[in-house]
Amino acid sequence: MDKWKDNKAWFLVLPVFILVAFSAIIPLMTVVNYSLQDIFGPGQRVFVGTEWFQEVLSDKRLHDALWRQFLFSGLVLLIEMPLGILIALMMPKKGWAASVSLVLIALPLLIPWNVIGTIWIIFTRPDIGLFGAAINSLGTAFDHTARSSDAWITLMLMEVWHWTPLVVLLAYAGLRAIPEAYFQAAKIDGASTWATFWYIQLPKMRGVLTIALLLRFMDSFLIYAEPFVLTGGGPGNATTFLSIYLVKIAVGQFDLGPAAAFSLVYFLIILLFSWLFYQVLQNVGKGEKA
């Protein structure tokens, strides 16, 4: 075959390969090595086999954190994906209004993650925060540091405010890339707004929505900085997500072995779900073309 004759293109891939090796593959190998040993310090380690995996897999607190994490990511996707598409559909298509709305929509994405947490701490404070004070003036005692339901509401609001813009931007880009001819054809056929959306816009957005879904799932599943700053995992353990619990084990207690085993389980969960989402979204509607 011809493509094997000229292999110079492989050199262009080399920098990425080296970068990935140093940023992902070598650290991952180190984590695998750590997960089978009890590490006391540099050069002091004992091989313990699968002991850490047994410990981690039977850890009740980890199970709780895992369900909490699934609930959080599930809610995030259920709210952000439809909301993002809806906003993208309502945005102006061209002219200065389109530019202005794009900039306004993208603003939350520019704020560093730990600052987001701080902003929302102040925003939801019952005494000086606009949101907290407003809710309290209605007669409901709102306090995200004391009630777990309030902590969840605050976290969800923060997450939706912070990350829906990403879905909007991707969906908007997907919508703008649809040729005008499709809409003209739909108009001639007398298609309703809903039919146009369901049979033209949504299928044409499949690629960008796949990326949006994967990014939002992975990011929300790995969330750390925002709940750490906002609630610190509390009240109690109400918002202790997987990464917060992981950091407690690894940095707080310096149990590198269990933390490494935990990280690998975490990694495998993300790998499985990302792959499943990818497969589902790539195969949706494929049968219709035939």
């Binding site: 180190t30 695998v32 090595n33 750590y34 089978l36 380690r45 091989f47």
Partner: peptide
């Protein structure tokens, strides 16, 4: 490579 904490089983695995 001491910092990577290699062991025989993980070396075989990789």
């Amino acid at each position: 490579l001491e910092w990577m904490a290699w062991t025989i089983p993980t070396a075989i695995f990789f």
